[in-house]
Computed example of a mutant assay.
Amino acid sequence: MANTPQSKKRARQIERVTAVNKARRSRIRTYLRKVEEALASGDATAAAEALKSAQPELMRGVTKGVVHKNTASRKISRLASRVKALATA
């Protein structure tokens, strides 16, 4: 347990930041799930729209420090290629 006033304050701050990051991560996952569901349904236009709305959300997670830059880029790239494959098929 934290003993010094500084460590007690840091513990309080970490709690708040953790809650915010958890909400951000959850929001990002929701957007990604919408893309996955659109892909699973086979609707190319819905998948493209879902991806278009998920991209800024993922990159916002990068700027906020919730997701690593390469992770977000990789996810966007893989989803984009799947959406493109669905559109051409």
Rank of each mutant, 00 (worst) to 15 (best):
A50Q: 10
R78F: 00
Q13P: 05
V62D: 07
E57T: 15
R25S: 09
S26G: 14
K22H: 09
L51C: 02
I28Y: 01
T30K: 12
K22A: 09
I76G: 07
D43H: 11
A38R: 00
I28G: 05
I28N: 03
S73D: 06
T45C: 04
K64N: 10
K84P: 06
Y31D: 14
P5W: 00
M1G: 14
A85S: 11
P56H: 14
R60I: 08
S81M: 11
S41R: 05
P5N: 01
V20R: 12
S53H: 15
K64M: 12
K52F: 15
K84C: 05
R16T: 02
A23V: 11
A38H: 02
H68Q: 03
S41D: 06
R16H: 04
L39I: 04
L32Q: 07
T45A: 15
Y31P: 01
A50E: 09
N21W: 05
P56C: 12
L39H: 02
E37N: 09
E49A: 07
K84E: 13
K64A: 13
E15F: 07
D43I: 05
S53W: 14
L32C: 02
N21T: 02
S41H: 09
A54H: 09
R33F: 11
G65M: 08
S81A: 09
L51E: 01
L32W: 03
A80V: 03
A19F: 12
E15P: 00
A47H: 05
N21A: 06
S26M: 14
V35W: 00
S26F: 14
I76H: 10
G42Y: 09
S73Y: 02
E49N: 13
R24L: 12
A54C: 11
R27M: 11
K9M: 10
S7Q: 14
V66L: 01
N3S: 13
H68L: 04
M1R: 14
H68R: 03
A47M: 01
R82C: 01
T45P: 02
S73V: 07
R60P: 01
H68T: 00
L86S: 00
V66Y: 03
P5D: 04
S77Y: 05
L58S: 08
N21V: 00
P5K: 02
M59V: 10
G42F: 04
S41E: 06
D43Q: 11
A85G: 10
L58A: 08
K8D: 08
R60Q: 08
T63G: 08
S81G: 07
R24N: 13
L51D: 04
S77K: 12
A89D: 15
K8T: 07
A89V: 14
E15Y: 03
S77V: 04
L86R: 00
K9H: 07
P5M: 00
R82V: 06
G42K: 04
T63K: 09
R33D: 12
T63C: 05
E15I: 06
K9I: 10
A48H: 12
P5R: 08
A87G: 13
M1A: 15
T18V: 03
A11S: 13
K34H: 13
R82K: 10
A87H: 15
A47T: 07
